[in-house]
Write a protein that binds this DNA or RNA. Structure first.
Lengths: 335, 335
DNA sequence: CTGAAAGCGCTTACAG
DNA sequence: CTGAAAGCGCTTACAG
């Protein structure tokens, strides 16, 4: 149905390897042969078979991006710049998703069709990184990481969460809760640690009855907020493990008639574009997601080019962005 | 570095083709050989090379999904169910994005590494469908379509937009504008036609000075709303080409202090999950995006299995969902 | 400058 | 039941 280099060779009256050389513009092909081959290729609407090329060269020009949940509005911010970056470097990016956080079947990641991998949703205890390392498969951590020795591009989550703790203290809150992310993720773990240590430093503490851990999902933010605010003595401020959770909390609060920030301060983490919308105006910790993604992508490209180079871990310093979801504790609420 | 079937064969003491047969569980392999091969494979942590398999069988078990813009919150709703569906049928889904609406380079879609294609962001005048057809490449239109003969899964956009026109008429609006989507898309074209014909039937007309066309993007909705509402005599109701545009309009209205629906009715189209958020509550036309995606996916799978079958075009009937962004025209606004 | 040969890692008739 | 051979569509030494 579709023409191969052999067909082109026949039409151009040359051998198949010559077609290969001519079309790739490799030196040592006479101009006239090159022209003839190109003409024949055009006529047959020849397109190089990527699978043939990949098998022969053992390079795929293709990298995978592993992500647990596509509908999570956090990931597009990471994925889009990665696609562009890889495309600019002649690599095709392929998205892998799966049910659990470890994502797709291990097999399809190491079946020889990928030159490298970006791991964006690894759980701390995942065995994937070690398996990949054991097979000599280049990979890089993006946003989340594990203890495995590897390149990584992350945010200084501890620091970012400390900023939030400091803010809540400054605002005079003393009844503070949190909807943390999963402790099994580096982001969840570090943000919780940073938040707690900041409060402690300020002489405050988290109310044990106002702390919960949920997956990074809108719905879970909704549910968590409802149960925390159903307490007889609800908190006046809530730190959320990320913006997606915070968005769920924010919307559920609106549904329950809880005024934000009047009755309740809510602070997120990540600063996805939604957070800045006028109808949202979420106070949060700003991360430069594009820079994060590009850093990861570049680390992976370097690793693919030079598998032996030493690992590098890069952490971006986030900053607080103050919008409309935080306020000083009100007298009524402190009573 | 990584073991091939030849390595497994050597270790198991059989020929390479026997390894292939044993591991695929094809009949006619003695149980004892099978066991021996499986053991050797396990020991070597052998994983089948997808590129070798694909080259040999000429089937890739892989389909592409072509989408113009990943960060558009509309697409995840389509992409996620597609990934799942294809995975269940043993196909790997691969996302393709590009700058323009025609997306990625034609070459990578027909380089022989894909069994089929889902086209989700085709422009009406795109030559891609014909090129694909000319190469015998199976594909299906999802959401948007062109005149090209092909399978397609769409929504009845004309009908959906008529519902909106009817609603605005019923609410008593007489000063009506629209931020339509691109006329070069079937959705843009049909929604505009449906909206206009409904208004005409109700004896109303669109105000020419209050009509604009923009790409399906949040930012463009913002800008469009600002200019329309900057008119000396702004409209009291606005139909937006889709929810993403409507969301932009909604947020810009909030920024400008324009009350929705007090001063302005805004209606979208698609009903993406964001539209239902408490902080948004957008009145819109509901489409079952998951059903839409699954329909497209199934059509593609059938086409791959039987390239000769007649084309089928399926259109889903949408319905209005009334939330908080519409209201009867107020006396003050009609003056 | 160009062709013949070998090989990338598989599968699939074809023999036996 | 199993092996030897051929082939999928390329690229890359190797000759000439």
């Amino acid at each position: 149905m579709t023409a191969t280099s052999k067909d082109v060779a026949r039409l151009a009256g040359v051998s198949q390897p010559t077609v290969s050389r001519a079309l790739r513009g490799s030196s040592g092909v006479s101009l006239e042969t090159k022209r003839r081959v190109e003409k024949a290729a055009r006529e047959l609407r020849y397109v190089l078979s990527e699978r043939g090329r990949a098998l022969s060269t053992r390079r795929n020009r293709r990298v995978g991006i592993v992500i647990s949940d596509l509908t999570n509005p956090f990931y597009p911010h990471l994925v889009a710049p990665l696609y562009d970056l890889f495309a600019r470097h002649g690599f095709q990016a392929v998205l892998f998703t799966g049910q659990d956080d470890d994502g797709p079947a291990f097999e399809e990641l190491v079946d020889g069709s990928l030159d490298g991998l970006v791991l964006a949703t690894c759980q701390i205890n995942s065995t994937l990184p070690d398996c990949l390392a054991g097979r000599g498969m280049p990979f890089v951590f993006l946003n989340r990481e594990t203890d495995a020795a590897a390149d990584s591009a992350t945010v200084d989550n501890t620091y970012g969460a400390e900023l939030v703790g400091d803010l809540l203290a400054e605002l005079g809150h003393r009844s503070i809760g949190a909807i943390f992310g999963p402790p099994a993720t580096s982001t969840g773990r570090d943000r919780e640690a940073g938040f707690r240590s900041s409060l402690a430093r300020c002489g405050l503490s988290l109310r044990d009855d106002c702390v919960t851990h949920v997956p990074y999902a809108f719905d879970r933010g909704c549910v968590a907020l409802e149960s925390l605010m159903g307490l007889s003595d609800p908190p006046t401020a809530l730190f959320c493990g990320n913006d997606v959770i915070a968005l769920g909390a924010l919307n559920k609060a609106a549904e329950l008639g809880i005024s934000v920030p009047g009755d309740l301060t809510i602070v997120g983490f990540d600063d996805i574009t939604l957070a800045a919308w006028q109808r949202i105006q979420l106070t949060t910790v700003h991360c430069d997601l594009e820079e994060l993604a590009l850093t990861a992508g570049e680390l992976l490209l370097k690793r693919i080019a030079d598998p032996g180079r030493p690992h590098v871990r890069k952490a971006q310093r986030p900053r607080l962005v103050l919008r409309q979801s935080h306020a000083s504790v009100t007298p009524s609420a402190t009573v």
